[in-house]
Design a protein around this nucleic acid. Structure first.
Lengths: 213, 213
DNA sequence: GCAGCATTTCAACGATCGTTGAATATTAGT
DNA sequence: ACTAATATTCAACGATCGTTGAAATGCTGC
């Protein structure tokens, strides 16, 4: 029934999301964004306070929902274990699975957003600050769960393990085509099933090697 | 003994390296670079063909040496095993160790370059292309060695494992301060010893989990 | 149909962008 | 000392940047 045609504001956000993801904040002009959104330049400043505000709204538009469903996935896993602890794989699966699931459901909608996060995560400038603002509450919650699944683990080992996880995860979402080149076509960056099979397994083994015993 | 004071060309490269690493290619103007290098704007175009050429030269200045010492480290490891195969940890150590060693020897010289590579690696725009151009020969050589250390492994598993390694490695080099925030100071992004103790161990376990039976 | 508000268009501002040509200063070879 | 090449300075170009104010249009409630 609704299937509203997207509002101007949302068309601007969509265009900005895609272009920011591809070329970064400074690599895109407001005019280019509005060109892709098929709207006049000054409309950007009617719907948003500034280019920086537009960028912030692009980030904020999806992050809340993202954190929500990932927390739910964790709660679901924990609900299946009332007397024992979830496994490391299950917890990591709750962290990465929802992201991959959204990518399957609507690749074009989420891939640009993930690419944007990948760039921010690796940006020395303000990457640490932004990622912490948007994701630290969620991540802290997951690390807590991982700590329980890995008894007697040291906090430093848990944090470093998560750090390696974060790098692997965001590079995967960046979909740069590097693995396509490197593997000569054997692996494809967009092969979500291949990622889903391998990433939690790889990362869980890393956690165990560092944090267990 | 010379200890020449750096030439103008090198001062420009240094300034460009640092600023490109912090804010990306489009986030920095030629004037800002030349300001930091304490030289006139037009000197950039005397020593380099264009801003893009300057960027390329920043990349090229260090990549050759980097690949060289990492290949030597691999050869050294293989030389210690004439009758048997090196372990996964040893091979990964040869891949990451030289990078960390340079960071210990001269942090200011290498950290900006590593940050730049981290950003490029995660750039959906031309990241895959650039990383492949600069590193694929080296990486192919390392994956070959890892394949021997992990008998009967499937190529796809090896490529994906390397992909996860690459993400963890470059995020670590980005030194965004995220892990400092997240851990409340327990871990520091610049703590090279902490990385050196943990990263090869974490990644080797991942490789084994994916590529070994 | 009209008032009032939300949205969109148009034209322009000063600042900064990458880049260049010509003039000047410095260095190296003889 | 003179020359030729190398290195640096100065001034400026057209283009594009982020941003804004005012006018025009569209829409909603009465």
């Amino acid at each position: 029934m609704p299937k509203n045609k997207p509002s101007t504001r949302e068309r601007i956000l969509d265009a900005a999301e895609e272009l920011f993801a591809q070329r970064g904040f400074e690599g895109v002009s407001v005019r280019q964004i509005m060109g892709k959104a098929n709207a006049d330049v000054s409309l950007a400043y009617y719907h948003f306070k500034s280019k920086q505000d537009l960028f912030d709204q692009v980030m904020l538009r999806r992050v809340e929902y993202l954190n929500e469903i990932r927390l739910e996935a964790l709660a679901e896993v924990e609900g299946r274990h009332v007397d024992d602890e979830p496994t490391v794989e299950e917890i990591i699966g709750a962290f990465t699975g929802p992201l991959l699931q959204l990518l399957v459901e609507d690749h074009d909608k989420w891939s640009h957003y993930y690419q944007l996060i990948a760039q921010i995560n690796n940006s020395p400038d303000r990457g640490g600050e932004l990622m912490s603002r948007y994701f630290d509450p969620l991540v802290t919650r997951f690390i807590e769960a991982l700590g329980k699944a890995l008894p007697d683990s040291h906090p430093a080992d848990l944090f470093w393990s998560y750090h390696f996880l974060s790098g692997a995860l965001t590079l995967t979402f960046a979909e740069t085509g590097r693995i396509d080149n490197l593997s000569g076509g054997v692996c494809r960056a967009t092969d979500i099933a291949a990622v889903n099979e391998r990433m939690p397994k790889f990362l869980a083994a890393g956690f165990r090697a560092l944090c267990q015993e």
